[in-house]
């Protein structure tokens, strides 16, 4: 496989692994599961309150979002929060440039 394929595979695997890491930890360690879910509940409520202010509508919409993202599809909420955090901190950029460096050092020299 050429350098382009190696770079893409390494970068994609690392990015997916970074996003999936939190749900896997939540599945393996129940304390992390509880802590992350509590954090997600607060994050969702604070976000909705930032948009709508205090009120009944905030509680209703927060409840709906918490049901879907924290209780029913908890791994989607955890993965999404992890992806958003990593994108905003530019961690994926570090992974991309690291994959490029790995590909250049480990792969065959292209002349």
């Amino acid at each position: 496989m050429n350098a382009r394929g190696n770079f893409l595979i390494i970068a994609i695997i690392l990015m997916i692994g970074a996003v999936v890491l939190l749900p896997v930890l939540m599945a393996v360690f129940p304390p992390i599961d509880i802590l992350v879910k509590i954090f997600l509940v607060f994050s969702i409520f604070m976000m909705v309150r930032g948009y709508l202010g205090n009120g009944v509508l905030t509680i209703i919409i927060s409840g709906v979002l918490i049901y879907f993202l924290v209780i029913k599809w908890w791994w989607v909420g955890a993965s999404g929060w992890m992806a958003i955090t990593l994108i905003s901190l530019s961690v994926f950029s570090v992974i991309l440039w690291g994959s490029q460096a790995i590909t250049m050092f480990a792969g065959p020299k292209r002349r």
Binding site: A3, R4, N6, F7, L8, S90, L96, W97, K109, R110
Partner: peptide, 18 residues
């Protein structure tokens, strides 16, 4: 910050090609 990620990708990929 997804645009920043795309920019990094299109800069990193050619360098990976050597």
């Amino acid at each position: 910050g997804g645009v920043h990620l795309m920019i990094d990708f299109f800069f990193a990929a050619p360098h990976a090609l050597g």
